[in-house]
Design a protein around this nucleic acid. Structure first.
Length: 464
RNA sequence: GUCCCCAUCGUCUAGCCUGGUCCAGGACGUCGGCCUUUCACGCCGAUAACAGGGGUUCAAAUCCCCUUGGGGACGCCA
C-alpha cells in the first residue's frame, strides 16, 4: 500500500514568494488529490541566513493560502545527528570516504578542468587513500565512475546524466555538518516522501541525490521539476525583480482563492477551464498536465481572476474584509455592519479589495466632510443644476420611503412634473451625493447612504 | 567552457505521447460594438501564434536531426 507523501521544503532565508508558493501549491494538490500526506520541512541548516522571522512569514503565507500541512513541521537543523549517522554508514559501506584536500586545492582543480574545457570537478585524490576521520577532513561520496544515472521526471520526462558529469560531492563538511544534498535525501527518506516536486533549478541535483539513495540502498521517490516563473520582461522573478512576498498580495487586496487559482493555472492546465474552486483543483489536479516551460507572471490576469472571485464572494465575508481595508486607510472609518450594504454595489466595480476600499470612501465619509472632485463640480454643478438639486432634495423630504424603488418613483414624478428627462438630474445628483462623476447606480447608492446622508449631501452640494 | 532543461497568439495555455477532424481552440489583455443615469459588470465581435532549417511520411504544430534563442546547474550554499 503506497501512500502519496509530498513535502514542501523552504529554506527560511526570506519571505515566501510567488514561485515557492506555487511549488508548495502543486505539492499540496498532489497530496490532497491522492488523499495522501503533505509535509512541511524547514531547511534551516544555514544558520547564518535563516531567521525565525522568515519561518513565521512562510508559515503565515501558507496559512493564508490554505496550504495546510500534516503533522508537525520538521526542522532540518535538529536532525544533524541523524544525517551524520547516514554519512557514517556510507563510509562503513565503502560508498563514501574521508578527504583531506583543502578547499583551495579543490578550487584549483576545478579551474584547471574548466580551462581545458572539461566539467569542473573534484579529481578523486583521496578516493582510494582509505583515510579515517581527522581534523580538517570532509567526507565525500564515491560516485560511480562510469555508466549513467537516469530517472523519469514527472514533468520533464526521461532525464539521463552521464556519471562522469557528477563528481564526488561532499556529504559532510570538515566542520562536521552535513551538506544539503545529503540532508535532503536522508530527510525525504525518513519522512517517507514518495513524490518530490520542486523548482527547476534542482534538476541537476537529482542525479546526485539518486546516487545517494542507491548508495544507502533506499528506494528513490519520484521527482518532478516545475519550471520557474518569469517577470514581465521574461527575466527570472527575484526579490528585487517583481517577486513579491505572498503576503504582499494580501496587502494589495487579492483574495487567497484568486491567487491560488492563478498560481495553479500558471504552468498547469485542464483543458479550457480557467476558474477552479479549491475543491475542483484537488479533484482535477494531475502532474501530467504540468507544463514544462517557464511562465510569465501576468498581473492583469490575476486582476481579472480576483475580480471574478470578488463578484462571486460571500457578502458578509467581503464586508468584513472591506472594513479591514477601509480601516487600514482611515482607522476607525469602516464597520462591517455598515459596509455590508455597499458591498453588492461595489462588487462588480473592484478588481481588488484595495480598490473596493477606495470606492467605498464616499460611503463612509460624512456629508459635511465629503470631498468633492473639483472637475466634476465644475462640469455638473452649475447654478441651474444646484437649483434643481435643492428642489429635488425638498421633494425627497416628502418621500414615503427610502428604498431604491421608492426613490426611483419619487425621482420620476419629480421629473415628470417638470417635464424633464432623467439625464438632467442624474449627473448633478451623482456628484452631489458621491463627490465624483462616477459611482454605482444612483438609487441604490442613495438607498445605501440612507436618508440623512443623502439629503445632507444634496443640500450641501446645492450650496457649494 | 561542460552538462541539463525549455521553445504554439503580447501573456497564460489546449492540441503533441496515440501524425490527418488544426488555413491551430480557450482565457487575460488590446481594439470595436451592444446594454446604459455615470463608472463598472455583462453580452457580441475583431486582433494575434506553431522560432528557423532539414528530413521521415500520401500527410507534421504533432515523429527525428541540426541551428538559433532563452534558462538552469557545475560550492566544504540551500
Amino acid at each position: 500500500m503506497s501512500q502519496v507523501v509530498t513535502r514542501f521544503a523552504p529554506s527560511p532565508t526570506g519571505f515566501l514568494h510567488i514561485g515557492g508558493a506555487r511549488t508548495a501549491l502543486f505539492s499540496w494538490l498532489m497530496a490532497r488529490q491522492a488523499k495522501g500526506r503533505f509535509l512541511l520541512r524547514i531547511e534551516d541548516t544555514d544558520r547564518e541566513r535563516s531567521t525565525d522571522q522568515a519561518i513565521e512569514a512562510i508559515l503565515a503565507s501558507m496559512r493564508w493560502l490554505g496550504l495546510n500541512w500534516d503533522g508537525e513541521a520538521v526542522y532540518q537543523s535538529r536532525r544533524i545527528e541523524r544525517h551524520n549517522q547516514a554519512v557514517d554508514e556510507l563510509v562503513r559501506k565503502g560508498r563514501a570516504y574521508w578527504c583531506e584536500c583543502p578547499p583551495e586545492e579543490v578550487q584549483a582543480m576545478r579551474d584547471r578542468a574548466r580551462q581545458r574545457g572539461l566539467k569542473p570537478k573534484y579529481d578523486g585524490t583521496c578516493r582510494e587513500k582509505g583515510l579515517g576521520p581527522g581534523p580538517g577532513r570532509a567526507v565525500r561520496l564515491k560516485t560511480p565512475l562510469s555508466g549513467s544515472t537516469s530517472y523519469q521526471d514527472l514533468v520533464k520526462g526521461p532525464i539521463v546524466v552521464d556519471n562522469q558529469e557528477l563528481d564526488d560531492m561532499v556529504l559532510r563538511r570538515s566542520d562536521g555538518t552535513p551538506t544539503y544534498n545529503l540532508a535532503v535525501v536522508v530527510d525525504d527518506h525518513d519522512m517517507g516522501v514518495s513524490h518530490v516536486l520542486r523548482g527547476d533549478d534542482h534538476v541537476n541535483n537529482t542525479p546526485r541525490q539518486i546516487t545517494i539513495y542507491r548508495a544507502m540502498g533506499w528506494p528513490e521517490p519520484a521527482f518532478g521539476h516545475v519550471p520557474m516563473i518569469l517577470g514581465p520582461d521574461k527575466k527570472k522573478l527575484s526579490k528585487r525583480h517583481g517577486a513579491l512576498s505572498v503576503m504582499e498580495y494580501e496587502r494589495l487586496g487579492y483574495l487567497p482563492e484568486a491567487l491560488v487559482n492563478y498560481l495553479a493555472r500558471l504552468g498547469w492546465s485542464c483543458g479550457d477551464k480557467e476558474i477552479f474552486s479549491r475543491q475542483e483543483l484537488v479533484e482535477l489536479f494531475s502532474v501530467d498536465n504540468l507544463g514544462s516551460s517557464a511562465a510569465v507572471f501576468d498581473l492583469k490576469k490575476l486582476d481579472w481572476l480576483n475580480s471574478q472571485y470578488i463578484q462571486a464572494g460571500d457578502q458578509a465575508r467581503l464586508a468584513g474584509l472591506l472594513a479591514e481595508f477601509v480601516n487600514r486607510r482611515t482607522p476607525g472609518a469602516g464597520r462591517a455592519e455598515d459596509l455590508a450594504r455597499v458591498v453588492p454595489l461595489l462588487k462588480p466595480r473592484a478588481k481588488t479589495m484595495v480598490e473596493m476600499a477606495d470606492k467605498a470612501g464616499f460611503f463612509v465619509a460624512d456629508a459635511r466632510s465629503l470631498a468633492y472632485d473639483q472637475k466634476a463640480v465644475d462640469r455638473f454643478l452649475d447654478p441651474q443644476a444646484k437649483a434643481l438639486i435643492r428642489e429635488f432634495a425638498a421633494a425627497l423630504e416628502e418621500a414615503a420611503g427610502f428604498s431604491r424603488q421608492a426613490l426611483e418613483q419619487a425621482a420620476k414624478s419629480f421629473l415628470d412634473r417638470r417635464g424633464l428627462k432623467f439625464k438632467a438630474l442624474a449627473q448633478p445628483v451623482r456628484v452631489a451625493i458621491s463627490g465624483a462623476a462616477e459611482s454605482p447606480g444612483l438609487f441604490e447608492t442613495m438607498e445605501a447612504l440612507g436618508r440623512d446622508q443623502t439629503l445632507g449631501r444634496l443640500k450641501r452640494a446645492a450650496d457649494l
